[in-house]
């Protein structure tokens, strides 16, 4: 693997962890637009503790995630009283507050950014991502996951059947913030340098899009969404060279063809959302994918055993 490919896989791994941070509240019918704020808290807390307390970073990332979860738990009670667009705005404001606060704290470099000493590579980050996927996949197969879906669809009905709707929403919000903080901490230890502006609203919106595009009802949704958002801009990167015959026709006043990749990317997202508003990985799609994998495995096994015959 080239270092470029390894780097992409690391970014994908981090994006998946963060995507679950947005996925859990969305599964409970809540939009958290402050994900970047929780990431920032996780990143800075982990970096500071690792730099100063001499704890190994594998421990401090969970301390950072814990801080993000704790903040979520504290603000959940007032913030989750709001609904719909108001909840989105309240969480957006929270994210801005966290970033603005860090911008003023000299202890972690304020606007200049903060150097993180310990480095994580793919070998450390990938297992953490796999563990995160496993935790969410497990939760999806318990009453916790079942009840979150029920709440997101019909809160009153769930409540009448004895589902503790408020508590579960707080739990989903808090656990989501924990994963966002964990992803932020991984980000810090991968890039080894963090700035408050790395954790802006655009990032929060992208992470929400990972989940909405990938699918909100399947544990595979955030993975697929994160993969599309990680790889597609990279695929577009060399498009102007591959299709120079076409891109040479672009008139000069439109500027560099390669600079249009984000516009093309955004247009594709809109098309995707129009064609498949429920997200790419619905539960039906997940089942079909599982059947397909099983079929491939069988085929592979058959091919091997027949190939081994003398």
């Amino acid at each position: 693997m080239t270092s470029y490919q390894t780097g992409l896989l690391v970014i994908l791994s981090i994006n998946i962890v963060i995507a679950y941070g947005a996925y859990l509240p969305i599964a409970a019918g809540q939009m958290n637009l402050g994900i970047a704020g929780f990431m920032a808290l996780g990143a800075y807390a982990s970096a500071y503790v690792a730099n100063n307390a001499g704890l190994p970073p594998i421990v401090t990332i969970f301390i950072g995630a814990g801080f993000a979860g704790l903040l979520a738990l504290i603000v959940a009670v007032p913030i989750l009283r709001t609904r719909g667009i108001y909840l989105a705005l309240a969480t957006f404001a929270l994210g801005q507050i966290v970033a603005a606060a860090i911008l003023n704290v000299e202890l972690v470099g304020a606007a200049e950014g903060y150097s993180v000493l310990d480095h994580f590579g793919l070998a450390t980050i990938a297992p953490i991502t796999i563990a995160t996927i496993a935790v969410v996949a497990y939760l999806n197969r318990t009453r916790f996951g079942l009840n979150l879906t029920a709440i997101s669809q019909d809160e009153l009905l769930a409540n009448l059947f004895g589902v503790r709707t408020r508590r579960l929403q707080i739990a989903a919000f808090t656990l989501g913030a924990f994963f966002a903080g964990l992803g932020g901490a991984l980000h810090a230890h991968y890039y080894n340098y963090i700035r408050p502006q790395d954790f802006n609203i655009l990032l929060s919106i992208y992470i929400i899009l990972f989940v909405l595009l990938g699918g909100t009802r399947s544990v595979l949704g955030p993975i697929v969404g994160a993969a599309i958002f990680t790889f597609l801009p990279e695929i577009f990167r060399d498009l102007d060279k591959k299709f120079s015959a076409f891109f040479d026709q672009v008139p000069d006043w439109l500027g560099q063809a390669s600079a249009w990749r984000f516009a093309i990317f955004a247009a594709l997202i809109i098309v995707f959302m129009m064609l498949r508003p429920q997200g790419i990985m619905t539960r039906g799609a997940t089942r079909a994918a599982a059947r397909w994998v099983a079929w491939c495995v069988r085929r592979l096994g058959f091919a091997r055993s027949s190939g081994a015959r003398p």
């Binding site: 939760l139 009453r143 916790f144 009840n147 059947f161 004895g162």
Partner: peptide
């Protein structure tokens, strides 16, 4: 399964694997 919620109990019932 949602109908059984009230009999499933607290945190243990919530995290009991239904589909593993």
């Amino acid at each position: 399964l949602l109908g059984q919620q009230i009999r499933a109990g607290g945190l243990r019932g919530l995290l009991y694997p239904l589909n593993v």
